[in-house]
Amino acid sequence: MTLQQRFLAAGLAVSISGTAAFAQSMSPMRGEVASFTDAFAVRVFPANPYEHRIKVEIRVYDQDFRPVQARVAPSDFMLGGQASRPVLVVVPFDGAATRKVRICTESVPFPGEQTQIKAQICGKFLGQHKS
């Protein structure tokens, strides 16, 4: 390796400082819901098992990980250490008799921290439209 290549290699090295750990869990991770309306609701509980607070996002995807237009309350929030909070997710059937969705809890890096790994916990839920 030439000196120029070494300099370039040093410049290219991506150094990440792991000053904070990002972690989360979510329960439940499985569920079936019967609904007589045009939507079904799921209540999930994201949890932060560590001492420091983290930023959490709740996202809803279909089976192919395409975003689903669901109502999530709240969808983005700060979660304190050792804390858990309920999040209500309302998913429309969009005319289907059944709908499978993934509800995912995602960690969000704090600004200025070069987090390269994003943790995502996803639960699988089935909604059944009863008439």
């Binding site: 991506v14 990002f22 989360q24 790994i117």
Partner: peptide, 10 residues
């Protein structure tokens, strides 16, 4: 249930 903790980045 599953818990993920990012300990270090790469």
């Amino acid at each position: 249930t599953c818990t993920l903790t990012v300990d270090t980045n790469g």
